[in-house]
């Protein structure tokens, strides 16, 4: 199991949720995971129902079985100052740089540097050891940028090493790339059973593979339960309306005659079933396209009550059951 788990996905597919559930799932039996956020959206804090995360690793949850989840919102600007302090002891100069707009420049304008800082911090957490020489975190889970930007984000080598051919940034980029391209890393893609996210997943995997980044698994999120089976779907098209009306009436929903309460339910219910049937066929198609990508695939259910902390634990349990931890 790779120690750096990167979770990406198209916007709206719930990648933050999946990353958080994965961090919980991996925190089995005394294990420690670090969940990192790189886009400054404070999505993790919202999921775990805690206050906004500072640029500081802190424990945010205890997993069933005694593991711990820590979280960190990486801020590029603070990471840079941190880095300058660490390597150059530049306390005052760091402030001067900030005043001049150099920090702004480096973290928002200069291409790739921001990404090197973000991935660099995550890789540092992956490699960090305590005094006994054990890894501080068993796993680091990253809530990464969306599929459309993930390859560029992770492939800092191309971005930066080409620009900065020597110097610490160059070395940093090289070190980060060594971790990111090794089996230590797995990039998972979260998708829905809908056309656009599936297409983007396929494109994203092709890009990751072309950049020789290790692709992990496909996680299909918000899968709706199967309510009608193949026989049921067939029957929706052929069934006599009157017999459905009778069954509804038998179930206690009013009269089956024309104009009766049960009879009036038949059309809307059959309409909903037709929509379901259409969606089901589309979902099957998408499932098949995902299957062709040749990666391990996992499915997480749509939570009927919407996403909350309890739901997060539910998804973590599901991931454990499916052998992701």
């Amino acid at each position: 199991m790779s120690r750096l788990q990167v979770v990406s996905g198209k916007g709206g597919t719930g990648k933050t949720t999946v990353a958080a559930a994965l961090a919980l799932a991996l925190a089995t039996e005394g294990k420690r995971t670090l969940l990192v956020e790189v886009e400054g959206r404070q999505g993790i804090a919202q999921l775990f129902e805690t206050e906004a995360l500072p640029y500081e690793e802190r424990k945010i949850a205890v997993a069933p079985g005694g593991g711990e989840v820590h979280a960190l919102a990486i801020d590029a600007e603070l990471a840079l100052l941190d880095y300058l302090q660490m390597f150059y002891k530049l306390g005052g100069a760091g402030r001067a740089l900030k005043k001049l707009g150099a920090i702004d420049f480096a973290t928002t304008i200069a291409p790739g540097i921001r990404d090197v800082l973000l991935t660099g911090k995550a890789c540092e957490a992956v490699r960090r050891k305590d005094k006994q020489g054990r890894f501080v975190y068993d796993y680091v889970v990253m809530d990464a940028p969306p599929t459309g930007r993930i390859t560029r984000f992770l492939n800092v080598n191309d971005e930066v090493a080409g620009l900065a051919k020597i110097g610490p940034i160059h070395n940093q980029a090289q070190a980060v790339m060594r971790v990111l391209k090794s089996p230590e890393t797995a990039v998972h893609l979260v998708t829905l059973l809908e056309e656009m996210p599936v297409q983007e997943t396929a494109d994203g995997i092709a890009e990751l593979r072309a950049a020789q980044l290790p692709v992990g698994r496909i996680i299909v999120n918000m899968v709706r339960p199967q309510v009608l089976d193949a026989a049921g779907l067939e029957l929706v098209r052929t069934v006599e309306r009157s017999s459905v009306a009778q069954a509804l009436s038998a179930a206690g929903l009013g009269g089956a005659r024309r104009g009766g309460n049960a009879e009036k339910l038949v059309d809307p219910l059959l309409d909903q079933a037709a929509e379901y049937s259409e969606r089901y066929a589309l979902e099957q198609e998408q499932r098949a396209s995902l299957g062709e990508l040749g990666l391990p695939m996992h499915e997480l259910p749509l939570l009927a009550e919407g996403m909350d902390l309890a739901g997060l634990y539910e998804l973590a349990t599901e991931l454990r059951k499916q052998g992701l931890s």
């Binding site: 709706r224 339960p225 309510v227 009608l228 026989a231 049921g232 029957l235 929706v236 069934v239 006599e240 017999s243 459905v244 009778q246 069954a247 509804l248 038998a250 179930a251 809307p268 219910l269 059959l270 909903q272 079933a273 379901y276 009927a304 009550e305 919407g306």
Partner: peptide, 27 residues
């Protein structure tokens, strides 16, 4: 029985839909 099973399925679909509606409304 198949009609009953189907009708039960229709009702479950409807229940799912109504929960979704309630959730959307809350949001």
């Amino acid at each position: 029985r198949p009609v009953d099973r189907l009708t039960a399925g229709l009702l479950r679909l409807h229940a799912e839909r109504m929960r979704l509606l309630a959730r959307e409304q809350r949001t």
